[in-house]
């Protein structure tokens, strides 16, 4: 399996009581009565699932336990809750299947976006390493021409990961950097282009327009591109994460999520709301600041690891 339980678990359980450890504890006390349900709601809400998603999961759990008469059986209720949550994030096929389709064309272009400070540039560095490590020729494009030292930051990551690097000539706008990068990739026989963009709040219309332009211009350089649009989401984010995902998805057609900073104590529960409302799935998780701190997101394993 491409997913390392050990690493994730080590990161996840350092100081926190694991999410489902708490569920177990709660269910240990008595069956699925009202008090237990409300405690479960607290646990889910406390993991940033959001009230609506938590209510939905629990009302379904309640119905199911009543229907099948297992409300007093701790292990069965627990496994039902597991599969209930799993069903939200689970994807068809095995984890990493999409990576194959990712390299179906050459070059493949991935547009990376998100609000400020979520970990876009760092994740691109890690992804570049991942793809380069499997023998692909990678190019990263510095389309964040706004933030101080954003270009230098990405350049360092490109060096570390052994990726090609394209940056702006002075005064160039983000779209033309992306255009240059995609054109260069076509000439150089690059397998994959990762386009870094400036962080922006989804509420800033002008900046969202700028991003749409980047996407359009990439399509001009290479018809059919970008092939993927990845939203980088910080696991510590609360309910605003859903609004971010909705707006970015609406404006740019998000095809996957990179969930970063899962090595902290935040649970990243908002991805459940995102998966259930938008059908957008998590592709990778970030579990640290180093080059190798990126894992494929495996919904099955992810939920299992949490239950452990």
């Amino acid at each position: 399996m491409g997913f390392s339980f050990e690493k994730l678990k080590a990161g996840l359980t350092k100081t926190r009581q694991s999410f489902f450890g708490k569920v177990r504890e709660v269910l240990g006390v008595g069956g699925l009565d009202e008090a237990t349900l409300s405690r479960l709601e607290e646990i889910l809400v406390g993991s940033d699932l959001g009230v609506a998603t938590a209510e939905r999961v629990l009302s379904h759990l309640k119905e199911e336990t009543q229907r099948s008469g297992i409300a007093r059986d701790r292990e069965q209720v627990l496994s039902l809750l597991k599969s209930e949550i799993k069903s939200i994030v689970v994807d068809n096929g095995s984890p990493g299947d999409f990576e194959e389709s990712l390299f179906a064309q050459k070059p493949s272009v991935v547009l990376v976006l998100g609000v400020n400070g979520t970990g876009k540039t760092t994740s691109i560095g890690k992804l570049a390493r991942r793809f380069a490590g499997s023998g692909k020729k990678v190019l990263v494009a510095a389309s964040d021409t706004f933030r101080a030292a954003a270009i230098e930051q990405l350049e360092l990551w490109a060096k570390r990961s052994g990726a090609d690097f394209v940056k702006a000539a002075s005064g160039q706008d983000p779209a033309s950097v992306a255009f240059d990068a995609v054109s260069a990739a076509q000439k150089r026989g690059t397998d994959i282009v990762l386009v870094d963009t400036a962080g922006r709040l989804h509420t800033k219309t002008n900046l969202m327009e700028e991003l749409k332009k980047v996407k359009r211009v990439i399509g001009k350089a290479l018809p059919g591109a970008p092939h993927e649009v990845w939203l980088v989401l910080d696991a510590t984010v609360g309910q605003n994460g859903l609004l971010q995902a909705k707006t970015f998805h609406q404006d740019l057609g998000v095809t996957g999520v990179v969930l970063t900073k899962l090595d902290g104590t935040a649970k990243g529960g908002i991805v459940l709301a995102i998966a259930s409302e938008l059908g957008v799935k998590v592709r990778y998780i970030g579990i640290g600041e180093k080059l190798e701190d990126l894992e494929l997101f495996d919904p099955e394993d992810f939920v299992e690891a949490l239950f452990a």
Partner: peptide
């Protein structure tokens, strides 16, 4: 602190 932080803000 990021204003978008969720439940974990308390721990942090």
């Amino acid at each position: 602190l990021d204003a978008m932080t969720g439940q974990d803000a308390v721990n942090v």
